[in-house]
């Protein structure tokens, strides 16, 4: 009995959306999780109801999960290792005398 009614829906599941929320303090939108919705408007409403129940957000972005392009884990070395030795991008690389004051 369960099978009969649920099977058409099974092939027709609401798409998955990735949800990004900007919190109270002007920070960037941050990925908070996912949910199912039929279209972007529905996804925004669902995100409001699911992910801002505790007053967490002031702005919502929704992106179809299928539209997210991700870097491949096997590229992890070439993608991220080259940044590792560029220590001169960090302020602590430059040692300055205390006399120069706060900088």
């Amino acid at each position: 009995m369960a099978e009969d009614t649920s099977s058409p829906a099974a092939g027709n599941e609401w798409p998955l959306w990735e949800i990004f929320i900007r919190g109270q303090h002007g920070m960037s939108h941050r990925h908070v999780g996912s949910l199912h919705a039929t279209d972007a408007e529905h996804a925004i409403k669902n995100a409001r109801d699911v992910y801002t129940r505790r007053n967490e957000g002031v702005s919502i972005w929704v992106v179809p999960a299928s539209q997210v392009s991700a870097s491949s884990p096997s590229d992890k070395g070439p993608m991220f290792d080259p940044a590792r030795d560029k220590v001169y991008r960090h302020p602590t690389f430059y040692e300055l005398p205390d006399e120069a004051g706060k900088m």
Partner: peptide, 9 residues
């Protein structure tokens, strides 16, 4: 689940 099928569809 079954009662909600028509809504989801």
């Amino acid at each position: 689940w079954n009662d909600g099928a028509w809504v989801r569809e």
